[in-house]
Each structure stands twice: as structure tokens, then as C-alpha cells.
């Protein structure tokens, strides 16, 4: 997974360039008498293709490599990437959900009430609600399910009087489990909405 690869990337660039150049390749018969005769024979037999030329041309490698060098934006993105992949601790408990469900349970409602009370005494606080899922099922579906869980929590907080503008959501689907285990106990912990106070 962490092999060195710059030369491979260069090879790919060449390969792709080669594939492109084939599109405009001209067929050219090899001058060997024998090959010509054999080719005619094979065509009588129904086989495709006389000897032809498929030129694979070289293209500059340097451009592709330049584009791969990290830019300022890429470095900023990398910093943001690390921020996203690290779990930020919360003063609130996580709200948990049943498998493949986004409905709030009673325990979840109580936690939401705690959050709503906090927001009344901290009117300038902003809260990001992260939706998470367990590892079972497709990543795409879980991403949408995580968003639905976060939104259900957000809507409930709004119904408890928290201003909508103080809240935002993001789903990480099954990408960032709290418990790396592969059993019901871990799964139950991972199906959650996590609060990050900004």
C-alpha cells in the first residue's frame, strides 16, 4: 500500500499517451514476403488482422510529474483532511441508533435535551452534528444514512428551541468507527450522532 510510485506514475502517463496515439495509428504492412503470404493465408481462414503497426509514441513525462507535486492548495487540503479524519472529543454523549434506522430513541432524546439546555446558556456556541454508521452494508448507502441520522438530531434540536443557524451536519458513513471491533457491541457504539462544539 505504501510503495514508492513516481516512476510508475510516469509509466502510466506514457501508457495513456500511448493509448491515445494508437487512435491515430496507420496500418502498415510489414515488408517481409513471408509475413505477407502468411497473413493472406490467415485471412482466408477467417482470422483477423494482417501484420500491422501500432505505434506507441513517447510523450514528455515531466509535465505529468509537475502536476503531481503538492501545491499550496494541496497542502491546505491535507491539513483539512487530517482535521476530518481525527475524532474531536465532545462534552456531550453520542446519540445512538438501531441498525439501518435513523429514528431517535428515548435515550437519544434525553441527550438532545442536554445539548439544547447547553445552547440556551451558550447562545454564541455552534454545533456540528456528525452522523456515523456501523461497518455493515455499502459505503454509499451508509453515507446517506449517516446524513439522515445527523439531520434527525438537528431537526429535533431545532424543535427544542435551538436556532437552526447554530447547527450544521456532516456524514462520515462507516468511514470513521469509534470502536474498531467487528461485533454487535462495537456496531452499537458506532451507529451514532456525535456533537462537536465549535
Amino acid at each position: 500500500m505504501n510503495r514508492a510510485f513516481p516512476w510508475k506514475r510516469a509509466a502510466l502517463a506514457l501508457f495513456l499517451a500511448a493509448v491515445v496515439s494508437v487512435g491515430c495509428a496507420k496500418k502498415q504492412t510489414v515488408r517481409s514476403e513471408n509475413a505477407g503470404a502468411a497473413s493472406r493465408e490467415s485471412q482466408q481462414a477467417g482470422a483477423p488482422g494482417a501484420i500491422g503497426e501500432a505505434p506507441v509514441r513517447e510523450t514528455p513525462v515531466t509535465e505529468a510529474l509537475k502536476a503531481a507535486e503538492p501545491t499550496q492548495t494541496a497542502r491546505a487540503a491535507e491539513a483539512a483532511g487530517v482535521a476530518v479524519t481525527e475524532e474531536k472529543p465532545s462534552v456531550f454523549e453520542d446519540v445512538h441508533f438501531d441498525f439501518d434506522k435513523a429514528a431517535l430513541r428515548d435515550d437519544g432524546r434525553k441527550i438532545c435535551q442536554t445539548v439544547a439546555d447547553y445552547m440556551k446558556t451558550h447562545p454564541r456556541a455552534k454545533i456540528l452534528i456528525e452522523g456515523h454508521c456501523d461497518e455493515r452494508g455499502t459505503a454509499e448507502y451508509n453515507l446517506a444514512l449517516g446524513e439522515r441520522r445527523a439531520t434527525v438530531v438537528m431537526n429535533y434540536l431545532v424543535s427544542l428551541g435551538v436556532p437552526r443557524a447554530a447547527l450544521s451536519t456532516v456524514s462520515f458513513g462507516k468511514e470513521r468507527p469509534l470502536d474498531p471491533g467487528h461485533n454487535e457491541e462495537a456496531w452499537a457504539k458506532n451507529r451514532r450522532a456525535h456533537f462537536v462544539v465549535k
Partner: peptide
């Protein structure tokens, strides 16, 4: 009999 014959040109990579 010859079924297919091709000549390719490119670099070592």
C-alpha cells in the same frame, strides 16, 4: 498459419 501479427514501437517503459 499466421493468426495475428503486430509490430509495436515504444520505449522500454
Amino acid at each position: 498459419t499466421l493468426m495475428v501479427g503486430k509490430r509495436y514501437e515504444g520505449t522500454a517503459r
